[in-house]
């Protein structure tokens, strides 16, 4: 590209370039929040899914023993709190304040993540993964509606086949979420796709130690459920019902080139299988 070219006077942008520019300007004009706030929210969903599962199980077992109210209150009382005011003695507003500010026992994220990785109960583990996928699914559906509606020039309604849709996910969806596209898309042109992100953003801050990499990979696995759900959600929004789509994630080695090896040492591969049913 010759920097000296005056595009407007001599070489007008092509139709497609114009659209891309318009779209870019439009995106820049949208209201924003910080990436960090978003990433932290996204990542905290995982340990909280574990906490929710624990809480639901406690509630279930308490309900069975008929002892729910007092036990839940007991659970809420923090450790070593100087003032344990019995909740019923407070006014309504004070009750509200008290219930989360003073009496809530909050488990820190890293403990929950560890607990999840060490969870042996398969049913619970699957429940949690399913919860995460659902959230990703809803996100994907809604994101797609929004992106489609805002006239992304990369969406050509004339001929949108599955490959183009996957490219849309790799480029537009991923960029919205993680500020960079998918690194590599592979397909066998028969409904199987591999979306490879060598630096999947939400997990970059995690590191693998030398000693127990397998266990630590297990800790990171649940963080891939949301993007899996997301991909399915986007596909669902574009007409591919979840029954027709299989989505699995796996860790892959980073390519052995001179890319800086910072952050999480493994890349992620999202394997998407779309069953093309004959009509």
């Amino acid at each position: 590209m010759d920097p000296g070219r005056n595009y407007q006077a001599n070489h007008p942008l092509t139709e497609q370039e114009k659209k891309q520019q318009q779209f870019r300007l439009f995106q820049e004009s949208l209201p924003k929040v910080s990436q960090l706030a978003f990433q932290m929210l996204l990542n905290e969903i995982v340990p909280q899914a574990m906490a929710v599962e624990n809480e639901l199980n406690d509630l279930n077992s308490l309900e069975q023993t008929g002892d729910r109210t007092s036990a839940v209150e007991g659970e809420r009382k923090g450790e070593g709190e100087a003032e344990n005011i019995p909740i019923n003695d407070l006014s309504l507003q004070e009750k509200e304040v008290s219930s989360y500010n003073t009496n809530l026992k909050i488990q820190p994220s890293h403990k929950l993540i560890m607990e999840l990785a060490e969870l042996e109960d398969e049913e619970k583990y699957n429940n949690i993964l399913k919860r995460l996928r659902n959230i990703g699914f809803e996100m994907g559906k809604k994101m797609c509606e929004m992106l489609v509606f805002s006239n992304n020039p990369n969406l050509h309604f004339k001929e949108m086949d599955l490959l183009l849709i996957m490219k849309f996910i790799c480029r537009d969806v991923w960029k919205q979420l993680y500020e960079k596209p998918i690194d590599n898309l592979k397909t066998n042109h028969r409904g199987t796709f591999y979306l490879i992100d060598y630096n999947y953003k939400p997990i970059q801050a995690f590191s693998l130690s030398e000693e127990a990499p397998a266990k630590e990979l297990k800790m990171v696995e649940p963080f891939l459920e949301i993007p899996l759900g997301l991909i399915k959600g986007v596909l669902a929004s574009l007409g591919y019902s979840p029954e027709e789509v299989i989505c699995i994630s796996s860790f892959v080695d980073k390519p052995a080139d001179d890319r800086p090896k910072y952050g999480f040492p493994k890349g992620v591969s999202f394997h998407v299988q779309v069953n093309m049913k004959p009509k």
Partner: peptide, 25 residues
């Protein structure tokens, strides 16, 4: 000094989370 994303994406992420909690609880 701040990397940014679209507010609507943030909103719908939080929304998906809250909706899931409604279902869970």
């Amino acid at each position: 000094k701040t990397e940014k994303i679209n507010t609507e994406l943030f909103a719908l992420t939080y929304g998906a989370l809250v909706a899931q909690l409604f279902e869970d609880y």
